[in-house]
Design a protein around this nucleic acid. Structure first.
Lengths: 136, 136
DNA sequence: ATTGAAGTCATACTAAAGTACCAAATCAAT
DNA sequence: ATTGATTTGGTACTTTAGTATGACTTCAAT
């Protein structure tokens, strides 16, 4: 917020200077009218783009971030979450076991627990629900 | 593409008119210099915001649209695609059969064909690949 | 020191998914 | 009218997924 104030103050200051400069330049006849107009146009054009970009990236883009609150809300543990991510990669239980250096039994346990916690009947449904919650 | 050309042509035309108008206004002394400068600044400011918004929404936001080309490239049929969508909703083969008023056998056939076409070993992997291709 | 949560693994089972192969109906395009 | 792609469905089979239950270990917190 402080940063925004400073930036805008500097911006207004710069614009005032530009106004004064352009008036002086026109009156004294050192510069052509076209040039001054073009300069002003370019400066405001860039300012418009800059301000718009800032506001768009900050407000309009809800860049799907992971909802860590929801993960702990659902009481999903570290290991279970790792397994969930592996499922979303399309791995089988055996492949997940190999990836995490665990037995297939352990993966099955984790998957079962995940299904209960996500209130899902299948791993594909778990994926759909997890995406809904934005936890993957 | 045609629309873009028309819009930009009109824009350039408008700007040329503005240039001429401002030059005339300044020379004839009907308007104050500040007013003309402010007018130009505002116009270009708005144009800057407008152009930037357009380009941002079209380029920076990969607003996950479905890649229909890829679907036909993979030779995925209508029915198969319906089944793929149902899988992504987390449905079982039996549930998909009920939803589409088909037998479970038929769904299994479609799923098998989908797995071949998507080069996947499992339905979860099919989902991951389909998302990669942006076809779901 | 005890408790409780997390993680690991096994057995035995049922359910669902997936494969292979075949057969038949539909339907648009030549 | 025939062809070829799509769609539907069946049987028989193998593989994978998921459940239920129990046991053991670790490790942080009381």
């Amino acid at each position: 917020m402080k940063k925004t104030i400073i930036v805008f103050s500097l911006l207004i200051l710069a614009l005032l200077l530009l106004f004064q400069f352009s008036k002086y330049a026109l009156i004294s006849g050192n510069l052509k009218t076209e040039f001054v107009i073009a300069l002003i146009a370019i400066v405001f054009f860039i300012v418009g783009i800059y301000i718009n970009k800032k506001s768009l990236y900050k407000n309009a883009l809800p860049l799907n971030e992971i909802n860590h609150k929801k993960i702990s809300e659902l009481e999903i543990t570290e290991r279970e979450y790792e397994v969930l991510q592996a499922i979303s990669e399309g791995l089988s239980n055996r492949e997940i076991a190999e990836k995490l250096f665990l037995s297939e039994s352990t993966i099955k346990t984790h998957v079962s627990n995940l299904l209960v916690k996500l209130n899902a009947k299948r791993r594909t449904q778990a994926l759909q629900i997890a995406k809904d919650y934005q936890i993957i």
